[in-house]
Computed example of a mutant assay.
Amino acid sequence: MKKIRKNYSLEFKIQAVSLSEQRGNVSLVAQELGICKESLVNWRKLHKEGKLTKEKQIPSDPIREELLRLRKELEETRLERDILKKAVGIFSKRDG
């Protein structure tokens, strides 16, 4: 059976770290939030290293923003192209 991996928002992670630092008990906070203790320990480590911040999520460089937008658009265009190729193949087989 495939294990499903949960994704938590940045805000949730920051709030969980803050709560665990206030209370001091990582295990109890993790249990209350319904998350794995190891995840919370990892988030605390990332927060201490400065890697778990809101600033990371906001690209400040307009060139980088444009590059990310164009890459996303290219991926969507490729997906549409592949769907259309399959549709042409399906319809051409029916006619024959």
Rank of each mutant, 00 (worst) to 15 (best):
G96F: 04
G24W: 00
W43Y: 06
A16M: 01
L19Y: 01
N42C: 04
D82G: 05
S9G: 10
I14C: 03
G89K: 06
L46M: 11
D82E: 14
E80V: 13
E73Q: 09
E11M: 06
S27N: 12
L33N: 02
E76A: 08
A87H: 12
L40S: 01
C36M: 11
E80I: 11
P62M: 03
S27Y: 07
E75V: 15
R64P: 02
K13F: 01
V88L: 11
E73H: 07
R5T: 12
A87T: 13
E21A: 04
A87Q: 13
G34P: 01
F12I: 12
R71E: 06
K48S: 13
L67W: 07
F91E: 14
P62D: 02
L33F: 03
S27V: 05
G89P: 02
R23N: 08
I83V: 10
G89E: 15
L40I: 03
N25M: 06
S18M: 08
L67M: 12
I58P: 09
D61C: 04
K48R: 13
E55L: 10
S60Y: 06
S20L: 01
K93N: 15
F91N: 12
R78L: 15
Q22P: 03
N7W: 08
I35P: 00
K85C: 12
S18K: 08
S92P: 00
L68H: 09
I83W: 05
K54I: 08
E76I: 14
L28Y: 05
H47D: 11
E65M: 14
S27F: 01
I63A: 08
Y8A: 00
A30C: 05
